[in-house]
Design a protein around this nucleic acid. Structure first.
Lengths: 229, 229
DNA sequence: AACTATTTTTTGGCTTGCCTAAAAAATAGT
DNA sequence: ACTATTTTTTAGGCAAGCCAAAAAATAGTT
């Protein structure tokens, strides 16, 4: 487990593992389990162990056998940069090329591996230095800093309160397409008409006057900014 | 050497070999030699032989031991599509992101491997369906058809004739930077003031009235459209 | 504490893509 | 027609990533 001194240019596979570990540890203090990484990467646990050793040798993760892994400072920096590239490309695909927000993930997954610092900076500039991607996720800046924003899940709103949709917690294309059908796109304002706490569903009023019933699944996966009424 | 029936998604390495073979056979009837491919790919000849067998198995090249290779119809189709993607991305990098024409090759070399038919079509549309890239090379359309254009090498112009620069035969960054210094960019009109046939150099007049002496190397690597005087 | 179920790692093996060294085939010169 | 040279292929190996199956460690239960 020798420390790597110079930056050794990661393979695409290594980058993907870093991103998987990032996702798994992003919202928790506990290290990521081998099985969880295998699940995330759709690969066998044995392959994960292989790769963890390599990433540990390169100093990108903290790894102790049987204890799971977390990102080192350098690993976090690289993972954050990948997130930055991924989200910037998503903005490009949606804003400039006119892709639907349900179609961009796989393409951005490829584009995020393009290596060129100057490209990323020029793209950022070209896009107008966006701070959020088409799904409402924050885009880290060149220093890895994420924008902060007041947002809560729709299910936290009480009857009579209004909110503006600013993000989605679930990125599954089928979910996004469902939202498209209901015109529940980013920027849409809605008011909670009635809450049904027994199943966490709620009826909301849309700008066009329509009232729609949203399931628990929906209310738990839409981020809104509370609006003063 | 079993024929491959379904399209098997090429690896990046395979794509790069196809492109190398394409470049080597583009302007000649003769098949590409193993050594030439090795030179082009900066790799060992033995590695090339390995790969040629694989590409032949997949039906992408015509390969007979010791005889060199040429692209099959399918191989040519794939190689042409790679060229299309490469040149479209170069247009994007120069026209939209403001890169210099001497800086885009390596980045486009990465971007050309992004797999998404819809992306290519949308990019083409976004760029205004350009028919030539920043170096003046034609961009094949979705059917693989190249645009035709009347163009000759600058060295073919006679004294007194005028031409507009429409392309470069040499893509080396140092050459492109040299052209930048002299303002010999695409679209520049020039008139041959004097030819020195003993070394193929010539003196030309630029739109701003400047007269510059161009070496054989330059006159043999600039494509111009002859202008009526 | 002992047993069991689960998780993780190890082991051995596969493919891709690269290498060097050596053999074989083609080409060129006499 | 024979030899020398060049080109190409074969043979054998190596590293990256992947897998399934066996072994080891951990955690949960009694």
């Amino acid at each position: 487990m020798k420390k790597q001194t110079s930056a050794p240019r990661l393979s695409i596979a290594e980058e993907n593992y870093l991103k998987a570990i990032y996702k798994l540890t992003e919202h928790s203090e506990r290290p990521a389990a081998t099985t969880a990484i295998a699940e995330q990467m759709q690969t066998a646990a044995a392959s994960v162990t292989d790769m963890l050793k390599r990433l540990a040798d390169k100093g990108l993760i903290h790894y102790e056998r049987y204890k799971g892994v977390s990102l080192s400072d350098e690993g976090l920096r690289l993972a954050t940069h990948l997130v930055r590239k991924h989200r910037l490309w998503e903005v490009f695909l949606v804003d400039k090329l006119g892709f639907g927000w349900d179609k961009v993930h796989d393409i951005a997954e490829q584009l995020e591996h393009i290596r060129s610092p100057e490209l990323v900076e020029r793209l950022d500039e070209f896009l107008g230095r966006p701070r959020f991607d088409p799904h409402g996720d924050p885009i880290p800046d060149a220093e890895g800093q994420f924008a902060e924003r007041q947002q809560i899940l729709l299910c936290k709103l009480t009857e009579g309160q209004q909110g503006v949709i600013v993000g989605v917690a679930e990125h599954a294309p089928s979910f996004l397409q469902f939202l498209d059908k209901l015109s529940l796109v980013l920027g849409t304002c809605l008011e909670v008409v009635e809450r049904f706490d027994f199943d966490d569903s709620m009826k909301v009023r849309l700008p066009d006057g329509r009232e729609v019933l949203l399931s628990s699944k929906v209310t738990h996966n839409l981020f809104v900014q509370k609006q003063p009424v």
